[in-house]
Design a protein around this nucleic acid. Structure first.
Lengths: 228, 228
DNA sequence: AATGGCCCTTGACTCAAGTCAAGAGAAGCG
DNA sequence: CGCTTCTCTTGACTTGAGTCAAGGGCCATT
């Protein structure tokens, strides 16, 4: 049996007639990745984009001395690497597989032809890019206007929200990667998590987090309060 | 006589048949702004987007204690405020007029109808959003992985580039606003500009900059070198 | 010419977060 | 099973950049 995501289940392709799904299917190429594989590199020409089928990828920027800033983590059903498709310039960031997985690759020119013939595909794609722009405004806001404890608090609340506001959840990614998402380094993250535990805001066992004081966490996240 | 930008001269609408331009014209509403006017506010529902005709606007985030991070500065011909159009959620940031000016407002539903009937309008818009995503990756990279002197150096080189690599140019905006673009505060910007002048990298008179040592500036911008 | 309101700069100080270094677990591999 | 390798934590130190406070210059308006 095959558990893989089918092309019609991809949100980007929602609402398309079967005929278009067949077209998409016929232009797509399946690609498998092992954990750690480079999918594309910043500066490399982009001849198409990807949709994750299984596994997880990160999109990130790299500083000359090797520090990483993660821009996105994408899982099954999510498209990535679309910027060069519509802009014609190279990839603006790097992409590496976080786990073993599979993606569909859609070549640029064939995909653009499909878009020309199908306005709802265009609108779906506009929605995807718009959501991504919004996320970036949040990221910039965090990096520029908030301190690390506030970013971490927001992120924990976000994760909790993803699990239906459960008080308990897994981080899903290693802590050094989390540091890269929050624009900091593992040492700092570790210290701040330590303070949160001591302050009674959360409890931790490995990568399992339990929110102990949601209200204070919210105040921290909004910048009303500071972590002492 | 009328110096204003005509609708056909807006890059977003490039390549559209006259009929569509007329449609666009008929759904658009002209709005005038005075310097300092709020155009929209974060959290406000977005029922349409804007195209700048004359003047300049800034799009920015605000921290609880009033610090600003500028996300974009837009001038004549540039669209802004499109995210809610395709995503259906409120504006993700604030917008204020930097100078007196005029914008065209395009209501959401009418515009979406036009897009559905016109693939090249959709592709143009996809191009605009993609370019904007790329710019954000650069902004995030700067904020997270580079120090203020490096961000400033890149910005100066960017301004020089805009003027055909001229060694001399105006900042165009007040220095406190420049600080807000670079993710810092006026005091810090002032100090670093001071250091650059002392170090012989640039010369300054008011808001006029002359690049004196482009090579070192480039090394600074890339992070290879530090400002002492 | 004088007043008030920005804009910009400079100095002294503070502090959040990064660097460097060491070590403990945990996980993957031959 | 033992070895390497990676992840995570903790301590001591450094530092980039922010805060606070003061003052000078410039412009617009009266």
């Amino acid at each position: 049996m095959n558990n893989d995501l089918q092309i019609g289940q991809i949100p980007l392709f929602e609402g398309l007639p079967q005929e278009n799904l067949d077209d998409l299917s016929s232009i797509s190429v399946k690609r498998d990745y092992k954990r750690g594989n480079i999918i594309f590199t910043e500066g490399e020409p982009g001849n198409g984009f990807y949709v994750m089928i299984s596994g997880q990828v990160k999109i990130f920027k790299l500083s000359p001395d090797g520090k990483e800033q993660i821009l996105h983590l994408f899982g099954p059903g999510e498209p990535f690497g679309e910027v060069p498709v519509f802009e014609g310039r190279p990839f603006p960031a790097h992409s590496v597989a976080m786990t073993d997985g599979t993606a569909l690759f859609f070549p640029r020119t064939a995909f653009i032809e499909l878009i020309k013939r199908n306005p709802s595909l265009a609108l779906n794609m506009l929605g995807v890019l718009s959501r991504r722009l919004r996320r970036f405004t949040v990221l910039v806001d965090n990096l520029s206007l908030k301190e690390v404890p506030a970013r971490l608090a927001s992120h924990l609340l976000y994760l909790s929200d993803l699990k239906g506001n459960s008080d308990q959840f897994e981080l899903e990614i290693p802590k050094n990667q989390l540091a890269g998402m929050l624009g900091t380094i593992p040492e700092t993250l570790s210290r701040i998590l330590g303070k949160m535990v001591k302050g009674g805001l959360i409890e931790m066992q490995g990568s399992l987090v339990r929110i102990a004081d949601r209200d204070v966490l919210k105040e921290l996240a909004s910048g009303l309060k500071r972590l002492t």
